[in-house]
C-alpha cells in the first residue's frame, strides 16, 4: 500500500486541497484535546513529583527542571501521540472503512483515480506536517500546567522558573521532534492500512478502528523505547 502512494497525482491541486483538509481535520480538530491533556499532565506530574520529592533531599527548584525535561522528552510526544492514536487513528480507520464498505473507494478507482495515493497520501503528509507543531504546543502547555499546579501546591513561582532555566539541553528538543515525526508516520500509516482493507459491514469498521488504535499505540511505545535507547 505504501509504495502505491508514490505515483504521480492526477491533479496536484486536488491532492493539495485534500492535504489541507486533512491538516485542518487532524491538527485543528485535535488542538483542544491536546491542549487540555497536556495542561493536566503537566499539573499532575508537578503535584506527584513534588509529593515524591517531599521525602528525599532534592532542592524544590528541581521540580521545574524535571517537569520541563519530562514534558519535552517523554510526555509531550508520547502521551500526545497515544491520545492522537485514539482520536485521529480511529477516525482515519473508520473514515476509510466507511468509504470502503459503501463502495466509495471502488467509485474512485472506476473514475481512474489512484485511490491509495489520493486517500492515504494526504493523510500521511498532513500528519507529518501538523503533528510536530501540536507536540510543541503540548510541551509548552504541559510546562505551564506544571507551573500552575506547583504554585497551587505551595512552591514559589521563582523557584519553579529557576528550575525551568536550569541546565537546558537543546538536544532534548531534537529528541522530541524525532519522536513526533516517527509517531505521526506510524499512526497515519497503521490506521490507514487498517481502514483501507476493511471487509464486511459496520461492525467490521468498528473492529478495524480498534485495531488501528491498538497497533499504533503499541508501535508508538515500542519506538519510544528504541529512540530513547539510541539517542540518549
Amino acid at each position: 500500500m505504501l509504495l502505491r502512494i508514490f505515483s504521480v497525482p492526477e491533479s496536484w491541486y486536488m491532492y493539495w486541497k485534500e492535504t489541507v483538509r486533512q491538516m485542518n481535520h487532524i491538527g485543528v480538530g485535535s488542538l483542544i484535546i491536546i491542549g487540555i491533556i497536556s495542561f493536566f499532565t503537566g499539573a499532575v506530574t508537578a503535584v506527584q513529583f513534588a509529593y515524591q520529592l517531599s521525602n528525599s533531599y532534592f532542592p524544590p527548584y528541581l521540580l521545574g527542571f524535571v517537569i520541563r525535561d519530562s514534558m519535552i522528552i517523554e510526555l509531550a510526544p508520547t502521551l500526545s501521540c497515544l491520545v492522537l492514536a485514539g482520536k485521529v487513528g480511529s477516525n482515519m480507520a473508520s473514515e476509510l472503512g466507511t468509504m470502503r464498505i459503501s463502495e466509495q473507494i471502488d467509485a474512485l478507482e472506476v473514475m481512474g483515480i489512484n485511490s491509495t495515493s489520493y486517500l492515504v497520501g494526504p493523510k500521511i503528509i498532513a500528519s507529518l506536517i501538523i503533528v510536530p507543531p501540536l507536540i510543541i504546543i503540548s510541551a509548552f502547555l504541559g510546562v505551564y500546567g506544571g507551573l500552575v499546579a506547583a504554585v497551587n501546591y505551595g512552591i514559589a513561582q521563582e523557584m519553579f522558573e529557576k528550575g525551568l532555566l536550569y541546565m537546558f539541553d537543546p538536544f532534548n528538543i531534537v529528541i522530541m521532534l524525532v519522536k513526533a515525526f516517527v509517531f505521526a508516520f506510524l499512526i497515519a500509516t497503521v490506521s490507514c492500512y487498517q481502514g483501507f482493507y476493511v471487509k464486511g459491514g459496520a461492525l467490521d469498521i468498528g473492529k478495524a478502528s480498534t485495531r488501528a488504535v491498538v497497533f499504533s499505540s503499541i508501535l508508538v511505545v515500542l519506538f519510544d523505547y528504541l529512540i530513547a535507547v539510541v539517542m540518549t
Binding site: 491533556i37 493536566f40 491520545v83 482520536k87 469498521i205
Partner: peptide, 24 residues
C-alpha cells in the same frame, strides 16, 4: 455508519480528557 465512527472518536476524546482531569 459515519455516526458510529464519530461516537467512538468522541468516546475516546471525552474519556481521555475526563481521566486526566480527575487524575489531577
Amino acid at each position: 455508519a459515519i455516526q458510529i465512527g464519530e461516537a467512538s472518536t468522541k468516546a475516546v476524546v471525552h474519556s481521555n480528557i475526563l481521566i486526566l482531569l480527575s487524575d489531577y
